[in-house]
C-alpha cells in the first residue's frame, strides 16, 4: 500500500474521531442541568424576558436538536468555538495561543523520559541483579504512585526555594530578552522543573517496557547471529537489539499521549506554565464552560495528531509494519 493511501486513510480515521468528540461535546452540554440561555444571560450579568428570547433565537436554542447539532458543527468547522465571557474574547484564539506552550512541555517531558527510560531499561536488562535493575523496579512503582501535582510541588520546594537554582513559575522572565539565544536559554531554564516532574512518571513506565523488550531481544536468534559474525557488543546491543526493543516503548508512548497531556494540566497549574492546562484551571475557577470545552477539543486534536505521528514512527522502526498499517 502506498504511503499516500496510508496517510489518507489515517487522516479520514482521525477526522472521524474528531467528529465523535464534537458530538459528545454537544450531547454533554445539552444533558447538563440548567437552560443554556439562562447561563449565557448570567454570564452577561442578567437579562429581561425579552432579551432571553433574543438569546434563544441568536444561539439557535429554539430549533430542534439535530438542527442545533448541525449548527454547532458548522460553527466549529468555520473556526468558531464560542465566546468566553470571562476572558472577553473568542475561545478559538485563546486555545490556539496556549497550545504551543503545552506542546513544548509535553514533548520535552516525553523526549527526556524516552531517552532516560530506555537507557535505564537497557542497563537493567544487561545486568538483571545490578543497581540499575533495582532502580527500575523501585522507580516504576513509585512513579505510578506519586501524585504528579504533589511531586511537582516537592521539586519546587527543593530546587526553587531551598536551593534556588530554577525559577518558581512561568515560562520566561520579564527582565530577560524576548528573542534570540538569550530567550531560548531563559525558556529552557524555566522548562527544566515542569518537564522533569512530568517525565518522572513516564520514565518509570518506559524503563519497564524497555527492560522487558531488551531481555526478549537479547535472547533472540538474530542476536546470536550478530555476535557470531563478530560484531562488537555495543553494536549488537544498541543497533540490533534496541531497534526491536523500542517498538513496544513507542507503542506505549503513543497510547499514553492523552495521559501525558492530562499530567500537563496538573503540572502547568503547579508551575503557572502558560499553556492549555493553566487555562483550564483558570476557566474552572470562573466556571467558564465554553473555554473548558474548547480546551477539550484542542487537546483531542493534539492527541489525534500524536497518534498519527506514532504510527508513522512505527512504520519507520519496523519495516514489517509497512504492509499492515
Amino acid at each position: 500500500m502506498g504511503r499516500l493511501v496510508w496517510l489518507a486513510r489515517r487522516l479520514v480515521h482521525g477526522l472521524g474521531l474528531m467528529l465523535a468528540v464534537l458530538v459528545l461535546n454537544f450531547v454533554l452540554v445539552r444533558l447538563a442541568p440548567g437552560d443554556p440561555a439562562v447561563v449565557i444571560a448570567g454570564e452577561m450579568g442578567g437579562a429581561s424576558a425579552q432579551v432571553m428570547e433574543q438569546i434563544r433565537a441568536q444561539y439557535g436554542l429554539d430549533r430542534s436538536m439535530p438542527e442545533q447539532l448541525l449548527r454547532y458543527l458548522g460553527h466549529v468547522l468555520s473556526g468558531d468555538l464560542g465566546y468566553s465571557f470571562y476572558f472577553n474574547r473568542p475561545v478559538a484564539g485563546l486555545v490556539f495561543e496556549r497550545m504551543g506552550a503545552t506542546a513544548l512541555l509535553v514533548l520535552a517531558a516525553i523526549g527526556s523520559a524516552l531517552v532516560l527510560g530506555t537507557w535505564l531499561g537497557i542497563v537493567a536488562a544487561q545486568r538483571p541483579r545490578g543497581v540499575a535493575a533495582q532502580m527500575v523496579a523501585i522507580v516504576s512503582v513509585a512513579g505510578f504512585a506519586a501524585p504528579v501535582f504533589w511531586t511537582g510541588m516537592m521539586l519546587l520546594l527543593a530546587f526553587a526555594s531551598y536551593w534556588p537554582i530554577f525559577p518558581v513559575s512561568g515560562m520566561e522572565d520579564v527582565g530577560q530578552p524576548r528573542h534570540g539565544v538569550g530567550w531560548l536559554v531563559d525558556v529552557a531554564h524555566h522548562l527544566v522543573l515542569p518537564a522533569s516532574t512530568l517525565a518522572m512518571i513516564y520514565m518509570a513506565q518506559y524503563s519497564r517496557q524497555a527492560r522487558a523488550g531488551m531481555i526478549a531481544a537479547l535472547g533472540a536468534d538474530y542476536i546470536r547471529t550478530a555476535r557470531a559474525k563478530g560484531l562488537g557488543e555495543a553494536r549488537v546491543v544498541y543497533r540490533h537489539a534496541l531497534a526491536n526493543a523500542m517498538i513496544p516503548v513507542i507503542t506505549i508512548a503513543g497510547l499514553q499521549f492523552g495521559q501525558v497531556l492530562a499530567g500537563a494540566v496538573l503540572v502547568e497549574t503547579v508551575y503557572s506554565w502558560p499553556g492549555l492546562g493553566r487555562l483550564a484551571y483558570e476557566s474552572i475557577l470562573r466556571r467558564d464552560s465554553p473555554t473548558l470545552l474548547g480546551i477539550l477539543l484542542g487537546s483531542s486534536v493534539m492527541v489525534i495528531l500524536a497518534n498519527l505521528a506514532t504510527d508513522a514512527a512505527y512504520r519507520l522502526a519496523d519495516p514489517r509494519m509497512r504492509g499492515v498499517l
Partner: peptide, 14 residues
C-alpha cells in the same frame, strides 16, 4: 483518544 482528565473536568463542571 479522549484526554481523560480534561473530559472528566468538563463532565464534573457541567
Amino acid at each position: 483518544v479522549l484526554p481523560a482528565l480534561l473530559f472528566a473536568m468538563v463532565v464534573v463542571m457541567l
